[in-house]
């Protein structure tokens, strides 16, 4: 089957029910997307399909119906996404394992809700677990990113 990931078209020979997560990591070698739980309980595997966040461990390859973006496609070191910039500004990441999922969820959330309040940020991000407990910085970075995106 054909998959478009980060702007590139790929032909992959996989079973229809293989989770997108494993297609990305094992077939295409795109390892920025992380495996945490495999049952949509942690958010580490979050990517975008046509700009909307999705838990890639839950999405079967055969059900992918749009362009896939992982954090490598969200921004580049020379042209960071506003959420990535804010993450650096607030020094959010500790161990970093959950952070690609956090950033992808945050970027999708800000697309839907450009001026979120604290409660909405907490609701949107509570499905992304962080064992280092960086939650206060995540919330602060999302507010900064929202301001930047509003001004853009």
């Amino acid at each position: 089957m054909k998959l478009n990931v980060n702007g590139k078209s790929h032909e992959v020979d996989v079973e229809d029910d293989m989770p997108l997560l494993w297609v990305l990591r094992d077939e295409l070698g795109i390892t920025d997307v992380k495996y945490g739980c495999g049952i949509a309980q942690c958010g580490a595997c979050t990517v975008h399909v046509d700009g909307v966040a999705v838990r890639s461990c839950q999405l079967a390859a055969g059900d992918v119906d749009g362009n896939v973006t992982t954090i490598e496609g969200l921004g580049s070191p020379s042209a960071l996404h506003a959420v990535q910039e804010a993450w650096i500004e607030h020094q959010v990441a500790q161990c970093g394992y959950c952070q690609s999922g956090q950033i992808m969820q945050a970027a999708s959330f800000l697309d839907l809700n450009g001026e979120p309040n604290d409660e909405q940020i907490d609701q949107a991000m509570s499905g992304n677990l962080c064992r280092c407990g960086t939650y206060p910085r995540i919330r602060a970075a999302i507010k900064t990113a929202a301001t930047k995106l509003q001004g853009a």
Partner: peptide
């Protein structure tokens, strides 16, 4: 307003 159900419920 926060996280669409379909993020997890495909």
């Amino acid at each position: 307003e926060s996280i669409p159900c379909r993020v997890c419920h495909i």
